[in-house]
Design a protein around this nucleic acid. Sequence first.
RNA 1: CGGGGUGUCGUAUACCGGUAGUACGCUUGCUUUGGGAGCAAGAUGACGGAGUUCGAUUCUCCGCACCCCGACCA
Length: 411
Amino acid sequence: MRQSKLFTKTRREAPADEVAKNAQLLIRGGFVHKEMAGVYSYLPLGLRVLTKIENIIREEMDAIGGQEIRMATLHPSEKWKTTGGWDAVDVLFKIQSRTEKEYALGQSEEEIVTPIAQEYALSYKDLPVAIYQIGQKYRDELRAKSGVMRGREFGMKDMYSFHETQEDFEKFYEIVKASYLKAFNRCGLEVKVTEASGGAFSEKLSYEFMALSDAGEDDILYCNACTHCVNVEIAKEKEGNACPKCGKGKLMKARAVEVGNVFDLGQKYPKAFGFTYKDTEGKEQTPIVGCYGFGTSRLVGTIVETFADEKGMVWPEGVAPFAIHLVSLGKDSDEISKTADALYDDLVRAGVEVLYDDRDMRAGEKFADSDLLGIPKRIVVGKDAVNTGEFEVVNRATGEVVKTSRAKLVG
RNA sequence: CGGGGUGUCGUAUACCGGUAGUACGCUUGCUUUGGGAGCAAGAUGACGGAGUUCGAUUCUCCGCACCCCGACCA
């Protein structure tokens, strides 16, 4: 895409009242627009990142047999009253129509997905089944904060699985956990699988996927030798203790962001809706349900917080809005511009996602913008490129510069 | 929801009980062009409502919005 056509611009300064690094940089870069506290619109660059993240988790869910659907976010109040959530869930947004009919805005989808599964999973032959969606969630947080990390409207992938037996559920539970680790890795993040309380969801343990970051809201204890990790909310151990799992390592304390979670929901929701299926003997059975959340928009913020430096954002390759930032230092139709134009066309033809800074601006401003946007590789086209046919390729994360021929770039 | 703070051009800021100034951005022109250029000319602003006052952007109160701490985040 030609940057001269991009309708957003960068800003030299962040709004004074934004303290969160992710909000400051995402707004300065024109990735998001703040509508109100805790609610953000995604602009072209931000949407590209969000879409990358969504596609990663979509691919991983599809790979383990998840089937994507799109559920309504405007919910009938009756279903929430059926499960008791209407009165029990205090973050539930409740709205009223002109005729005083009551609705809820989706903050999770158990109330919606359970009746849908019920309609089709009539027999043991129809199980197990895993259904997911990627979309907006609404939660009436008393206090939105930390930029896109804790909003009142946010993006999430949520999957629900239905099983005949606890054993079958637990098998799938492990498959999802592995697939989540893969997805977070593809987003450039290392996460800890953390034991946590099931909250009101479940009396059983749940597992939270925690990205280590000072911008987080949770404290975790993790073993420096094995994968053991527990949320301090339920930890019996203390910082510095020997790891109860491997015995070798020490428990370290860290601040972390919860970017995903998985729950054993048991039979609560099928029971509330009278959802049963026929087993091999024709008897009514109640399925076991699992729930799996993955915070897509929170990941955008977490990634900014994790990798940004003093110059701006730094996107891992898997989620970067573009793979290459092609920066031309030419003007009008000089040789430099022609060289850059030609390289841009070649890159596009080669299927490379490239943002082409063809604007008529000074070099300093272009470099500053490029640093801020954080695209992984920058190709600079100046006099040298015209004279030598070699292009300067700068790695945004490391600052490393390599000279590369055109043939290599367009591969 | 409890506590604290802040609301001034698009953004960041200054000053002030009496004319609202600066920088960046924006518009026009010329110059400049490898790390946020220069000159000139322009356009754009006091969150809303009451009150005090001859006069309020400034002081007071109420609302609203935003930020921070806490609680909350099935």
